[in-house]
């Protein structure tokens, strides 16, 4: 129990710290692929997936981690990921992003988080659980890419390493511009930790490493998965209102740690302040939270569980969810950002 609490909080805090300092925002990254024609954050995500994939499959080969891909429902993954994509644009951040922005003091993120927690719990064990069960039983197929394609997983990992290397080398070759920085007020380690702008690719490697470490640590407590946000977030509410110990697990402490780590990073960097949005933003964020909880529960994961972890595990669920999550983000971005800009210009 003590091991579970301490390691969960520690890994979570480490992740929260890195996400806050690295400005790691997948919602913004997926959005900018469309509205700014900028793929930087998406490439960083691919790098994090690759780092984790190589490390976790090495741990599996060494017998330190167990993983079975099992089956998944195409209908649930596609619809859930798409709805989740719409939700994160309205909420102004994905599930993880919402946790760490709550740690930066954004009240709008607290609203999104509350509704996300509520609908996720409703979809898992509440009045909407029947919907989750029936949708998840439609179109069930094998989840392991290696099994479907009849190849060794390491071949898939090699292809991923190759593709990501080519993408990153090409990206590094493009003409660079010097980005203006704030004048440094700190020096040495304090400057690097609490002031300096972190490259998204350095952040990506750190996120990949933390995601890989999460596997053996979480499995040591009996939770057979790596990083996850949605189920643990729902578990907090489920545990809080039932007091039932079955909802207590490593993931719950992971997300609480994420919030603490982000708060520490923001506070130490002079980036923490309670920030109250206007009423319209509060309502939009809350609606986003509702869709995030429903979508992530159907899809069996958020941008971390599916987009970062299940992709690295070479499952269809992860990659299909990633594609439809991005499509959901683009559709919502059109209505929230692109169309209003065009209307103003007209």
């Amino acid at each position: 129990m003590t091991f579970m609490i301490l390691t969960g909080l520690f890994v979570g805090a480490l992740l929260g710290f890195v996400l806050q300092r690295g400005r790691w925002c997948l919602t913004g990254g997926f959005r900018d692929m469309y509205i700014a024609k900028d793929n930087r954050m998406f490439y960083a995500l691919l790098l994090a997936i690759t780092v984790q994939s190589v490390m976790v499959y090495a741990l599996i080969a060494a017998g330190k981690v167990q993983f079975t891909a099992g089956t998944f429902s195409l209908v649930a993954i596609i619809s859930g990921a798409f709805v989740f994509g719409i939700g994160i644009i309205l909420a102004g951040g994905c599930a993880t992003g919402t946790w760490y922005r709550a740690g930066e003091g954004l009240i709008g993120s607290w609203a999104a988080l509350g509704f996300y927690m509520l609908t996720a719990a409703m979809m898992k064990t509440g009045v909407l659980a029947g919907i989750t069960t029936s949708v998840s039983s439609a179109g069930v197929v094998n989840n392991s890419m290696a099994e479907t394609l009849h190849v060794n997983t390491w071949i898939l990992i090699a292809v991923l390493v190759l593709v990501v290397s080519v993408v990153l080398i090409n990206y590094a070759r493009r003409p660079k511009v010097k980005i203006p920085q704030l004048k440094p007020k700190k020096s040495g380690l304090a400057h690097i930790l609490f002031e300096k702008r972190w490259s998204p690719f350095v952040t990506a490697v750190l996120v990949g490493l933390i995601a890989a470490i999460a596997w053996p640590v979480s499995e040591a407590t009996g939770r057979m998965f790596g990083l996850g946000v949605t189920v643990p977030t729902a578990n907090i509410l489920q545990y809080a209102v039932t007091g039932d110990n079955q909802f207590l697990n490593w993931g719950m402490f992971l997300v609480l740690g994420l919030f603490i780590g982000s708060f520490i990073a923001a506070k130490a960097s002079g980036e923490f302040r309670w920030r109250v949005p206007n009423a319209k933003t509060m309502v939009t964020s809350s609606a986003g939270g509702v869709l995030m909880g429903i979508g992530a529960s159907l899809a069996g994961g958020c941008s971390i569980g599916n987009g970062l972890v299940m992709t690295a595990m070479m499952t269809w669920q992860g990659w299909i969810a990633l594609v439809f999550m991005i499509l959901g983000v683009w559709v919502a971005s059109y209505f929230v950002f692109v169309r209003p800009t065009k209307q103003r210009a007209a």
């Binding site: 806050q20 400005r23 925002c25 930066e104 511009v177 980005i179 702008r197 923001a266 980036e271």
Partner: peptide, 15 residues
């Protein structure tokens, strides 16, 4: 006062 803009605004200006 949006933290992410500390990156996105100077980047846009430079580009």
């Amino acid at each position: 006062d949006c933290t992410q803009a500390t990156e996105s605004i100077p980047r846009w200006a430079a580009e």
